[in-house]
Design a protein around this nucleic acid. Structure first.
Ligand code: FES
Ligand code: FES
Lengths: 144, 144
DNA sequence: CTTATTTGCGATAAAATTATCGGAAATAGG
DNA sequence: CCTATTTCCGATAATTTTATCGCAAATAAG
């Protein structure tokens, strides 16, 4: 469904959010430990998210990653996915035609659009805060 | 969503079905022309589908691929997808945890299961005959 | 200013996916 | 049989994705 990069990015964002809610900045080493992802690769992905304004970073001692709690409600999962994987999941044709076009649809089109729009809607309405709270209350986990 | 291999496989199956409905066997060269996929790669995928009994092949002159029209209603898209991509789309965790487990769910689990089960249901209830008929009536296309 | 720390970044490597190539095996027809 | 045709199959190559490495840039603290 999502790329590995995207999975790591989402999980990293959630973990940073939980720590930012407690006022803690987190270093990459801490993140990858809690998320179970490769360090340098995850750092690259986070760097991408920094450029797109979804998370902030600070270099040097006492540095690390943080997300302002005030932003967590407005950050939706779809934004993370869009930065890392682009929007091909939401706009592309399920059978790989150059573009998805309802006037000249592929054989799977009518089945696809429904599922795709539900996926999109779910990602649009799920906030980072909601996901971080799930971890905080122990209802959900990031690593097994 | 699906791998390229899976996209090619589904489209090839649909094209062969339309021709088998007319009583024609089709050669790999004809298939890839109508589907827009690389020849040797598509041949590999079809060979996999043959092994799994979803399509039949005949070597030599007047050979090629065919699907018995009587089977087309019972062949569902999910079978094609399962042969080529496996069932990780239907059973795996959306955030990449080792397995999807409702008792220890990842943060996206509750959103995911709904979409995943709808996707599964759609693929389970869509028959090859239905897709082939869409092509035959010109309502849908395989290549753009 | 110096040092220790931590992200940023370009180059590189490994692995997986996608794609190509060459020839073997089967088969129909003459 | 012999030949032409076509799928089958293993090896190989190209591309994309995933992952690692080394060092530069920034920053906080003494
Ligand atoms: S044309 Fe294929 S999903 Fe819309
Ligand atoms: S545990 Fe992640 S989708 Fe179920």
């Amino acid at each position: 469904m999502f790329s590995k990069a995207c999975e790591y990015g989402i999980k990293a964002m959630i973990y940073v959010a939980t720590q930012s809610l407690k006022g803690d900045r987190v270093k990459i080493g801490d993140i990858v430990e809690k998320v179970g992802s490769p360090e340098a690769f995850t750092a690259k992905i986070l760097s991408d998210l920094v450029k797109n304004g979804l998370i902030e970073s600070l270099k040097g001692p006492y540095g690390g990653f943080a997300i302002q709690p005030a932003k967590m409600e407005s950050i939706k999962v779809i934004q993370i996915v869009s930065v890392i994987d682009g929007d091909s999941i939401f706009r592309g044709c399920g059978l790989g035609l150059a573009e998805c076009n309802a006037l000249e649809p592929c054989p799977m089109h009518s089945k696809f659009v429904k599922i795709r729009s539900e996926l999109k809607k779910a990602l649009e309405t799920t906030s980072l805060l909601e996901l971080a709270n799930g971890i905080k209350t122990g209802k959900t986990i990031l690593i097994r």
